[in-house]
Computed example of a mutant assay.
Amino acid sequence: MELEEVGNRLVPFIRTKLQDPNATIENVARGPGHAGFSYFFDTISDGLRTSYFLRLPPPGVKHEGTADVMRQVAAIRTLQGTNVPHAPILWASADEDWFGVPYFVQPRLDGDTLKDEWPLQFSDAQLRAMARDAMTALAGIHKVDPANAPYLGQFWGYEFDVTRWDRFYERAAEPELLALQPRVKQLLLENIPHDARIAVYHGDFQWSNLLYSRKAELLAVIDWELCGIGPTLNDLGWICAFSDPEAWAHTQPTRMPHGDELEAWYREGYGEVEGNVRWFKALAMYKFGIISGFNLMLHRRGKRDDPHWEEIKPSMKSNMEYALKMLTS
């Protein structure tokens, strides 16, 4: 949807929601994200300026999976009344009258994620405190009663979460870098930790999905496109493995604490943890190694131009080696 059309649709929408026939819209701009269309905009109402964030699914696709924005709404609304920092849902509906697709609107928070140059303004001590706050927030997410999010459905099973990547592996570029895939897959299926908690999980809990203020305060956990009901340790294994230099062969531009320290902070915030965290670290790197190979294929075939995957390519092998180590040592 073009910015002009978004702006035109926002005027009657915001006038209705704010009950102000004179409200105006300014500064409509595209927001970040890959799984949907997002926009920032300002509203002037009663002389006050307020900034908002609008999320829409991409056009021409079924509203399911990552394109079902109401899944994100369901997950975020479970955080009401908790200590987990989040941007509340102000308005949301599967009704398509306003934008031609389902939507949700949140307040725009004045912060940024730990990517690019943003972390350079913080000291090492600040980054440690920021990381600890993130792990406390993750523990809070995992304590949410999954019964509060029936829209997210049910867990499809561990076997599915391992085997669902087969079709991506079969199409991956540089398959020799994923030579350990059959062995790692076998060990994952043979050592499933059935005692892990099944509840709401974020699905992509990492530094670029955490919004911080310029004062190093955690403002919100964002980007819930991959949320669901399943083993909550998926999130812990994901961020811990991403924060372990041993899993990576390419340069990781981060000054965040080691994954082992992140895990310790999570345990402080959550309490007794059931399930083998090493299995989930292995699954995280198994998935990411395959995802890297698949996205590299898309890039090289011109289907999705993103040279970043050429930089990540050396880590496909080390991802699998790390996963094997987590499962055997």
Score class of each variant (00 low, 15 high):
residue 11 V to M: 06
residue 12 P to S: 07
residue 16 T to C: 04
residue 25 I to L: 01
residue 30 R to E: 12
residue 42 D to S: 15
residue 43 T to G: 00
residue 44 I to K: 10
residue 44 I to M: 14
residue 46 D to P: 02
residue 47 G to M: 10
residue 55 R to M: 00
residue 58 P to T: 07
residue 59 P to G: 00
residue 60 G to M: 03
residue 75 A to P: 13
residue 80 Q to L: 10
residue 86 H to V: 12
residue 86 H to L: 12
residue 87 A to R: 01
residue 89 I to P: 13
residue 93 S to H: 11
residue 108 R to P: 10
residue 111 G to M: 05
residue 115 K to M: 09
residue 120 L to E: 14
residue 121 Q to L: 15
residue 122 F to V: 09
residue 122 F to D: 04
residue 140 G to F: 07
residue 151 Y to F: 14
residue 152 L to G: 13
residue 153 G to L: 07
residue 170 E to I: 07
residue 174 E to F: 07
residue 179 A to T: 11
residue 180 L to H: 07
residue 186 Q to A: 14
residue 188 L to V: 03
residue 191 N to R: 11
residue 191 N to D: 06
residue 203 G to P: 06
residue 206 Q to C: 13
residue 215 K to A: 15
residue 215 K to M: 10
residue 219 L to P: 08
residue 222 I to S: 10
residue 225 E to M: 02
residue 236 L to R: 03
residue 244 D to T: 14
residue 250 H to M: 13
residue 254 T to L: 05
residue 260 D to I: 06
residue 261 E to S: 09
residue 269 G to T: 12
residue 285 M to H: 01
residue 287 K to C: 06
residue 288 F to D: 09
residue 290 I to M: 06
residue 290 I to K: 04
residue 297 M to Q: 14
residue 306 D to P: 04
residue 316 M to V: 12
residue 319 N to K: 04
residue 319 N to Q: 02
residue 327 L to G: 01
